[in-house]
Amino acid sequence: MSEVKKIATRESYGNALAKFGAEYPDLVVLDADLANATKTQIFKNAFPDRFFDCGIAEANMTGIAAGLATCGKIPFISSFAMFAAGRNFEQVRNSIGYPQLNVKIGATHAGITVGEDGATHQSLEDIALMRTIPGMTVIVPADDTEVFAAVKAAIEHKGPVYLRFSRAASPVFYDPETLKFEIGKGITLREGNDIAIIACGVEVNYALEAADRLEKDGVKARVIDMHTIKPLDKDLVLKAAAETGKIFTVEEATVIGGLGSAVAETVSENNPVPVYRIGVNDVFGESGPWAELMKKYKLDADGIYEQIKAKL
């Protein structure tokens, strides 16, 4: 069996910016002293005149991006999700969201896969926060291929977009030739009518692994990559509710307010079936190698399998 290619979605993000820089002359990139970590450095190397390091001042970076957008630029701002969405929430809400400015927020190092840096740097709340802002599009791509598609879609979408990326390397499973990516349209990766697993980001791959194991137990799980949390693909969610009658959501984030909540809101208002939210259960993260943390918080394939089995 050949080795599966692995790459962190933050790395894919930097590569995608550099790739699309030539095609979109209005694309500019801002960072806050984390260009080596967020990988916007790759864009900086390719287009030094369109890269601006704002230093350790995320709030100002956000406002500068707003001003640039009023003048026709397409700014991407990058920092760790903790700062891009957390520290910056009100700047994003008032300077970007309220005027619906064409700013893209590329937030890296989201979730507990940050690893050793620990709880202060592990943003679990960003999906929930960004989802509450009217007109904000929230995208959590699952692999390298999907990041390229998502970044391109974000550039072409007029209005604010929040993109969430991870630090840890994850397997590449989409084929660029066949991936059909559309903002707001989830992708069914595996058919099944016993249960539905709706996941996003790094959890999509783990969900697929968990579904393999469930199948051995005779449970056919439908797996959906819900890369866009907002606007949510309600049709796909309700189809899954109707056809499987039991939904599990999986996200590397708090279970409060994110993908799980979005799915539960839709299901409970339209076709109430049980929705179980798998994620970080209202606690802070901690330091440790990311793979160990994913195991400890039951967010790897084993953990997801266990949590689903407990509810069957």
């Binding site: 709030a59 406002g63 500068i64 001003g67 640039l68 026709g72 700014p75």
Partner: peptide, 16 residues
């Protein structure tokens, strides 16, 4: 506190 940052962005856009 937020407006000056946006103004800086506008000035930067003119420079670009």
């Amino acid at each position: 506190g937020q407006g000056l940052s946006a103004a800086v962005g506008m000035a930067l856009a003119a420079k670009i």
